[in-house]
Design a protein around this nucleic acid. Sequence first.
DNA 1: ATAGATGCAAATGTTTTGCAGGAAA
DNA 2: TTTCCTGCAAAACATTTGCATCTAT
Lengths: 143, 143
Amino acid sequence: MAHEVERRALAEYLEKHSLKHTKQRDAILDVFLEAGQHVTSDDVYQRVREQHPGIGYTTVYRTMKLLCEAGLAQEQTFDDGITRYEIEHEHHDHLVCTKCGKIIEFECSMIEAAQNDIARAYGFRVLRHRHELYGHCEDCREG
Amino acid sequence: MAHEVERRALAEYLEKHSLKHTKQRDAILDVFLEAGQHVTSDDVYQRVREQHPGIGYTTVYRTMKLLCEAGLAQEQTFDDGITRYEIEHEHHDHLVCTKCGKIIEFECSMIEAAQNDIARAYGFRVLRHRHELYGHCEDCREG
DNA sequence: ATAGATGCAAATGTTTTGCAGGAAA
DNA sequence: TTTCCTGCAAAACATTTGCATCTAT
C-alpha cells in the first residue's frame, strides 16, 4: 500500500489526539499525496470522488485542515483567494505565472537572512511568511 | 478643499477614459485618502456613509477598483482573505501581527536585488510581488 | 439625448456550521 | 455505548453582477 510513512504519521496523530481513523481520512491523504503540489480543496474533492463517490465537500475541507495540523500538509493562499495545499517540506517561496498559472518554488538563503534581520530590527517574532513573485514565466513572456 | 492633487489626478484619469466625474467618486477618494493605510472596502464604506448615507456598497467596491486603475490606490491581500487598499507609494513589504492586527511596512534593497536575481534565473518577468512576515509584534510577544 | 454611474437585490464562489444519522473506539 | 465523523443543506462571508433608474456630459 502506498504512502506508508504518511499513513503511519496520520494514524499516530489521530491516536495522540483521540480522533478516529476513518476510510475517508486515509483516502483523502492518499489523493493529496498523489496529486502533487499546490492543489485546491476542490482538486482533492474531484479526485477523491473518482474512487470514493460518497465523500462530501465538507469532509475534504475538514480533513485538509487536519492534515495541516498533523504536519503532513501546508496551506498556501495566493492572490486568487483560493486556498491551496502542498506537501509539507523545506522552507521555500513561489513564482506564480499569471498567464498560465504555473507555480515554481524557489529558495534563497540571502532573503531568509534579510528577513531575520528585519524582524529583529522591529522586535518582531516571525511565525510564518509568504513571499510570492507574480509575473510571466519563460513560456508566457513574448518578445 | 483637501486632496487637491489627487482629485485632479482622478479628474484627469476620468476624462482621459471618457468616464464620469461624480460626487460619489470624489467622496470615496477623500475618505480613502483620509483613512490611512491598509483600509478595507468596508472601512471605506462605513466612513463614507457618515457624510453620504446614500452611497452603496457596490459603488465603494467599484470605485476602489477604479482608484487602483488610476494609480491612486494599491490593492493588498493578506492572509485573512480581505482586500485592503493603501495609498500608492514606494515599493515595500509588510510585517503583520497576528495578535493585534498591526501592519508595519518595511523596505529592503537586499531582498529586492535577490528577487531580481531569482526572476532572471527562472526566465521570469516579475510584474508585482507580495512579501509578508506574520508573527507577533514587539507589544504582543510575551516572555 | 446618451453613454455611463448608481444602488438595490440577487448571484457568485469559497469555506464553514448545524444537525441527524452513522461508524470507530 | 459513547465519542467522534460524516454528509447534506443551509449559512457565512467578501465580492460581483443584473437591471431599472438616475446623472453628467
